[in-house]
Amino acid sequence: MTNKFIVLDPTLEVETPRVERAPRPSQIHTIGLLDNGKQNSDKLLQNLARMLVAQQPTLKINYYRKPGAYRPAPAALLDKVAAECDAALVGIGD
């Protein structure tokens, strides 16, 4: 072809920055359970909590709940979980 035909990329073209996993804690004294606010997610997390405590009776469990299921968790809530816990369990319960 002698004539060049140029088109433009319609996408954002931004590589999603790679987020490394936080270092795994060697010991977990406090674990946070972050409820995403969906129906029954509390039951799922409470059962998980019981299983974890059965394995490690000294484990402290902190329970958090998103203000609503349909919006991202507020940054302040995530900061609070990070400050108060060695690790956290998050997921989608429905």
Partner: peptide, 10 residues
Amino acid sequence: LTSRRIELSG
């Protein structure tokens, strides 16, 4: 314009 330019035959 800053989008990536792609050269094609047509």
